[in-house]
Design a protein around this nucleic acid. Structure first.
Lengths: 143, 143
DNA sequence: TTGATTGCAAACGGTTTGCATGGGA
DNA sequence: TCCCATGCAAACCGTTTGCAATCAA
């Protein structure tokens, strides 16, 4: 099972650290745990306020940073703004050159990364593969 | 030989497109073609002005965007600001988790990327591997 | 000569901060 | 009750834009 942002785990973590669960935080986490589109913080802000007014931008940023620092949210740096990924299991990314959509690629789908002759000047702790190309939607639209 | 930002190539490209070479552009390109540290635009601005006052921030951004659009400069999106990479040959990146330093990894040093079972919903045009860990400097300092 | 490029300053968009009010444990 | 969290607005920082003056071709 993939490690995925989950409100139960967040509540446990909050209790352990003496932090509080508020309706705003719950709404943000509930939106993020189902988000498949790697939303920006602005998109989270708008979506949450559609369902649960009023949550301020500052609260969205606070909550997102809190989750990120706790390792429960991955940030993807793209042009313009940071995108959020509730999947914190090891995985890779596909970025569409046309529309900018970011898709998760399961870690197990790419195998045999042969690091054959890296000079030993760095200690490698993790790696991620960023694939770029055209997504299904753009490919069928462009013909 | 790696494809590397080079003032001769830029001059040729400028001539072909009817664009002008100015002292400011020359200074920016000369700095970038020797830069090994993946500078931010702000760092380019400061370095160029140390040697060649006065070049405005706007000019640095214009020139960088022009080179990027011509495919002669790669941008690396990291937290905070975009970093610039005069190496536009295929290569991978190593990012230090401690100091944030970005190092180039030769494309040929990592082989055998086995894409074994990608669903065929995307067309892959390129890929880049982002390695994360501790760089030599931070490793020896931290002991 | 002439249109691309420059410097400047203001605008812009994403993110952070300070502070008084409000609310969860 | 006691802090933590909230909303708001201003600040911040990287980047873009508008404009008049300038300069490479």
């Amino acid at each position: 099972m993939a490690k995925q942002l989950n409100i139960g785990t967040v509540e446990k973590m909050a209790r352990e650290r003496g932090l509080k669960m508020t309706p705003q935080r719950r709404a943000i986490i509930e939106y993020l745990q189902n988000a498949r589109e790697h939303p920006t913080t602005e998109e989270v802000f708008m979506a949450v306020n559609r369902d649960f007014p009023m949550t301020s931008r500052a609260t969205v940023y606070n909550t997102v940073n809190w989750l990120r620092d706790a390792g429960m949210l991955q940030e993807i740096y793209e042009a313009g703004a940071v995108r959020l990924d509730p999947n914190f299991d090891r995985h890779h990314h596909f970025i569409c050159n046309k529309c900018g959509r970011v898709e998760d690629i399961g870690f197990e789908l790419i195998s045999d990364l042969g690091i054959c002759s890296l000079p030993e000047s760095q200690t490698i702790e993790s790696f991620e593969i960023v694939l770029r190309g055209t997504c299904k939607k753009c490919r069928t639209q462009a013909g």
